[in-house]
């Protein structure tokens, strides 16, 4: 079953015994890869079938499939999500998108709503740059600084970084293979993904979401401040906003239990609805 090509291309992994229950599709954000989910995935896999993957260009995806034009905007990534849903024969999924992947999920769900049972938007931001009375939190100059940071860290990455990551004696479960790929990206790809992410403006699409949506934000988040979470909630009709007792932009790492529970409670509604005669 399923298309082997798309599976290999995105290094798709599937877990969870309850294959008859709802299927969760966990999409990582800018910076790292599907390992971002490794603390919440085992919790969720107790009750759901869980699909994780790497965006093209990240982690163990097929780097040769990366095309500058295709991934210059988030639409290319949304196309990939839809292709995976289709080629892997997934039932309508509960799509959990972290950070930029929240908006990738929004784009995909606006285009083909029938493939989505629900959306869970984890610390989303439809637009990172300030516009008039909209506060995204950043200016264009800030984004240019980030591109600089990416570049200067690329230089030191292979030489200075690798021994530290690999010499992780007291965390043996972090195997060499994992740490080698985790958060490591070809500089050109990282640059392109950073641009696609932080220069995007998809505020208009929010109102067109026609899928039950949960917005999760944190009490304190530099990248997606609470007012952005409230904006997303206000724009998506019928959405639910839950603020996690967590700080930072990666609640799935800093508060995995609370994050997993919030996702599970919302996703269970799909199961309940489906159980009804």
């Amino acid at each position: 079953m399923g298309d082997l090509d798309v599976q290999a291309r995105h290094h798709v992994t599937v877990s969870g015994r309850h294959t008859s229950g709802p299927t969760l599709m966990l999409a990582h954000g800018f910076g790292c890869d599907q390992n971002m989910w490794r603390l919440v995935e085992p919790i969720l896999a107790r009750d759901f079938r869980v699909v994780t993957f790497d965006h093209i260009g990240a982690g163990r995806s097929d780097l040769s499939a990366w095309r500058a034009e295709r991934y210059a905007t988030l639409d290319g990534y949304a196309d990939d999500v839809l292709a995976m849903c289709r080629d892997l024969d997934l039932p309508p999924v509960v799509f959990v998108g972290h950070s930029v992947s929240a908006m990738i999920g929004v784009l995909a769900a606006v285009r083909e709503p029938e493939r989505f049972a629900q959306l869970v938007l984890l610390v989303p931001s439809p637009c990172y740059i300030d516009h008039d009375d909209y506060r995204g939190g950043f200016t264009r100059a800030d984004i240019d600084e980030l591109l600089e940071s990416l570049e200067s860290n690329y230089l030191g990455w292979s030489a200075a970084m690798a021994p530290v990551i690999m010499g992780n004696a007291d965390r043996p479960e972090l195997g060499q293979e994992l740490t080698n790929s985790f958060c490591r990206t070809d500089p050109e790809i990282a640059r392109s993904f950073a641009k696609a992410t932080f220069l995007s403006d998809h505020r208009q699409e929010l109102a067109r979401v026609n899928v039950p949506t949960l917005v999760l934000d944190c009490t304190q988040d530099v990248i997606a401040p609470p007012e952005v979470g409230r904006f997303v909630h206000a724009q998506i009709p019928g959405s639910v906003l839950v603020t996690l007792p967590a700080t930072g932009h990666c609640p799935q790492l800093s508060a995995p239990q609370a994050t997993a529970e919030a996702i599970a409670i919302f996703a269970s509604e799909v199961a309940d609805t489906a159980d009804r005669p």
Binding site: G31, D142, I143, E145, S149, L253, S254
Partner: peptide
């Protein structure tokens, strides 16, 4: 940190530190 550095910190540095317990040699401003 500078704003760009903050973005880098949140998207790369902090997750890696959480996952590995340590991180070294990262260039920031």
């Amino acid at each position: 940190l500078t704003m760009g550095g903050r973005l880098y910190h949140e998207t790369h540095f902090a997750p890696l530190l959480k996952m590995q317990g340590q991180i070294g040699g990262v260039a920031l401003e």
